[in-house]
C-alpha cells in the first residue's frame, strides 16, 4: 500500500541496503582468505589460491584458542547466572503486587539511562578490594551486574504473557511458588528465556572496555582484549587481523541470523537495547 517507488524500485532500495550491510563482512572475509602477499591487492572476488593460512597463524603463533575459550566461559557463565537471577526477579515483578513495586520498576528502567562507561573505574576499584582483579570470575560478576536489569525486564515481559492460572494450578497440585516457577512457568517461557540468554551472551561476548581494564595477564584475556593488543603497534598485519575479526564475529552472526525472528520480537517487546 505504501509504495511510491513501485515494486522494482522498492526491491532496488532494499537490495542496495542489503549489499551495504553485508559488504564489510564480505570484504573482511575475502581479505582473510587472500594469500599473505596478496592482502593489499584489490581484487573483489576470491581466487583459486585462497588459503586458510591467516587463520592457522592465529592458533599457532598466538593463543587465540585460549582467548576464545575465555570469552566463551565468561559469556556462557555470566548469561546463565543472569538468567537465573533474572527469572526470579521477573517472576516477582510479573506476579506479585507489593508496596514500592513501581519504584523498583523505575529503578530497573533507570539503569538503562546510566552510561556503562562511568562504571569502569569504580568496578576496577571494587574488584581490587575483593582481590578479583585479573580474574575471569571478577569479570563474570561485573557482567552479571550489568546485564541483570535489562534481562529481568525482558523476562518479565515474557512471563506476563503466561496466564497466572497456570501457576495457580501448579500450586494446587502441591508445588510451592519456587517449584511452580521452575517446573511450570519457566518451560512455557522457554523461547523468551532463550532470546534473553542470547542477547546477554552477545553483549558479554562483544564487551571490550571493562575486560580491558580488569584483565592484564595473557592467559585471562578475552577475545576483544586480545584483539586490542593484537593491533597495538603502528603496523597492522591485515591478513591475520581480518581472520581474527571473522572468528570474533561469526558466532554472533550465526546465532542472531538463525534466531533473528525470535530476537526481533523479543527485543522490540523489551523496547531498549542495553
Amino acid at each position: 500500500m505504501w509504495n511510491v517507488l513501485g515494486k522494482s524500485g522498492k526491491f532496488t532500495v532494499l537490495g542496495i541496503w542489503l549489499a551495504f550491510t553485508v559488504f564489510p563482512i564480505y570484504w573482511m572475509g575475502l581479505t582473510s582468505i587472500k594469500p599473505k602477499r596478496e592482502v593489499n591487492d584489490l581484487y573483489y572476488f576470491p581466487k583459486s589460491n585462497a588459503t586458510l593460512d591467516s587463520y592457522r597463524v592465529l592458533f599457532k603463533d598466538y593463543a587465540f584458542g585460549v582467548f576464545l575459550r575465555n570469552s566463551l566461559v565468561v559469556s556462557l557463565l555470566a548469561s546463565f547466572i543472569v538468567i537465573c537471577l533474572g527469572i526470579l526477579g521477573a517472576y516477582a515483578l510479573a506476579r506479585y503486587e507489593f508496596a514500592g513495586k513501581s519504584q523498583v520498576m523505575l529503578a530497573f528502567l533507570a539503569t538503562q539511562m546510566i552510561p556503562g562507561l562511568i562504571a569502569l573505574a569504580p568496578l576496577y576499584l571494587l574488584m581490587q578490594k575483593l582481590s578479583l582483579l585479573n580474574s575471569l570470575s571478577g569479570l563474570i560478576l561485573c557482567y552479571v551486574g550489568g546485564q541483570v536489569p535489562f534481562s529481568t525486564m525482558m523476562l518479565r515481559g515474557f512471563i506476563q504473557r503466561i496466564p497466572p492460572e497456570l501457576d495457580e494450578a501448579a500450586l494446587i497440585d502441591g508445588c510451592n511458588r519456587f517449584t511452580a516457577l521452575f517446573r511450570v512457568v519457566a518451560p512455557v517461557a522457554l523461547p523468551g528465556i532463550a532470546a534473553t540468554f542470547i542477547f546477554s551472551f552477545v553483549q558479554c561476548w562483544n564487551e571490550l572496555f571493562l575486560a580491558m581494564i580488569l584483565i592484564d595477564s595473557e592467559g585471562n584475556k578475552t577475545f576483544p582484549v586480545a584483539m586490542r593488543s593484537f593491533i597495538g603497534g603502528y603496523w597492522i598485519e591485515w591478513g591475520s587481523l581480518s581472520a581474527a575479526v571473522m572468528i570474533g564475529i561469526v558466532p554472533t552472526v550465526v546465532i542472531f541470523g538463525l534466531m533473528s525472528k525470535f530476537m526481533i520480537s523479543g527485543l522490540s517487546a523489551g523496547i531498549v537495547k542495553g
Partner: peptide, 20 residues
C-alpha cells in the same frame, strides 16, 4: 535476518573492519 546482522556485532571489531 541479514540486515539484522550489525546489531549482533562488536562495535570495536567493526571499527577495525571499517578502518581497513
Amino acid at each position: 535476518g541479514l540486515i539484522f546482522i550489525p546489531w549482533a556485532l562488536s562495535g570495536f571489531l567493526m571499527g577495525l573492519v571499517w578502518k581497513w
